[in-house]
Design a protein around this nucleic acid. Structure first.
Lengths: 243, 243
DNA sequence: GATTAACTTCGTACGGCGTACAACGTAGGA
DNA sequence: TCCTACGTTGTACGCCGTACGAAGTTAATC
């Protein structure tokens, strides 16, 4: 059943091709494959999502995975669309635009913290999935109260979501994080020797930022700082010249 | 010569360990390996930077590459640091902070456009390289005119550079870009059928944004819009509450 | 000058990956 | 009953990073 990605993305839509009924019933569905892949990625990272491991997890052979998904690249698109589709989309109600955008940003940050592997999926074809489109529509409506034309509205949303993405990237746990203490123990002395008294500003600010990053409250502070900047700038853009 | 990454990063520093003089002279240096890797990545993308191809390009065997670099992960860090080290760092002079930050942003965007593979390197150990630190110091000084404490100064710079990164990501050429016209020809009809009249806002804004993206002038517009927002927000942050 | 030790180079091999392909089994439609 | 479409699977190919050890080359030591 080699269906095109677009049809797999929309597989739950009534008018999606269903494939004939002959032959043995599938032991798994495309949706099940995608869900298993997401679970694997959540637990062990995107690198652990291999076709072989996916087959094991589903109790089917490696090559059977290809019956339900065209290949690994397509699978990643399906995974991203699946988690987008499941995001909460509460009505925006009468809230002001700042509150609305705050909620959008918070929701997206939560999504990225739950599925850090989303950062590694950059396939443009994701844009054609039902989950992605539903998310896009909902988030565009968050900007209803602002006087933006279509292009500016898209740009503004992109601006917000890019900030969230960067924040998620900063919070992500480096795969090498476990070894970092030992690495640092071996490197600190040598680095200090190389640096000497050079770059005093970088050394001072870097040290302060490094300490701050280890403080428990840091992520919240950085998030609050950045989000405030984003909201301020959107306010100015809306009030200012047509944009 | 299994030297640690930190020593390879600082290999040009006078006090870096040089390795004994016995045995045959190396046919290549660590620097040459890194340069060849960057050239390969520029020409064919990061995926083309394999140890085997690197050996071919350098005229040495696959396994000899490991004499000069500890492994592929380390190589990526060395590549990123190498291109950071070569960025221009003109004195900021008496320019105002907006001009300074604009220059920093422009320079970083140019770097990412020249080396799109930088987006794929996320290893935190890059922070310890001489190029990365020199770049950091220079860019921190761009913020000298603003009344920011150390932590806020780092946050502000991160805010700017994250914006640049997102802009570069938006401009990057998808590896599938060549096939997209044919893909779209096959998908457009089906997508329209799936969508029907649903999500009218997403359809309208998405269409407008899509058209805009194909316009020749689009990247410049988006860049200008976003950068203006970033500068506005930094201005407010500096004037506003301590932050 | 002979020996030793440090160093580079390289071939082979291992265990992973994505996936093309063809054989086989199973069910519904004719 | 036969045909045909379909799901499942094993084998195999060409990649990847890299561990390991043999072989060759040079400088230091005796």
């Amino acid at each position: 059943m080699p269906r095109e990605l677009i049809d797999l993305l929309w597989r739950d839509h009534p008018s999606a091709p269903q494939g004939g009924t002959r032959g043995p019933r599938s032991r798994v569905t495309t949706g099940a494959v995608v869900d298993a892949a997401c679970a694997l990625a959540d637990a062990e990272g995107l690198a652990a999502v291999t076709v072989r491991r996916l087959g094991d997890a589903l109790g089917i052979s490696t090559m059977s995975v290809y019956t339900h998904v065209n290949g690994r690249d397509d699978l990643l698109v399906l995974m991203a669309d699946a988690v987008y589709a499941r995001m909460p989309r509460p009505a925006h109600g009468t809230a002001g635009w700042r509150t609305r955008i705050r909620r959008v940003a918070d929701t997206n940050l939560a999504l990225h913290l739950e599925h850090p592997w989303l950062l590694e999926i950059t396939d443009d074809r994701t844009a054609f999935g039902p989950g992605t489109i539903a998310k896009y529509d909902h988030e565009l409506h968050a900007l209803d109260p602002l006087p933006l034309d279509d292009v500016a509205r898209d740009a503004a949303l992109t601006f917000v979501l890019d900030f969230v993405r960067a924040a998620a990237r900063a919070r992500r746990r480096d795969p090498r994080a476990d070894e970092m203490p030992q690495i640092w123990a071996r490197w600190a002395g040598r680095l200090a020797a190389y640096l000497g008294d050079d770059y005093p500003l970088a050394q001072r600010v870097g040290g302060a930022a490094g300490q701050e990053m280890n403080a428990a409250s840091s992520p919240a502070h950085a998030w609050e700082f950045g989000l405030a900047r984003v909201l301020d700038s959107l306010g100015q853009a809306a009030d200012g010249p047509g944009a």
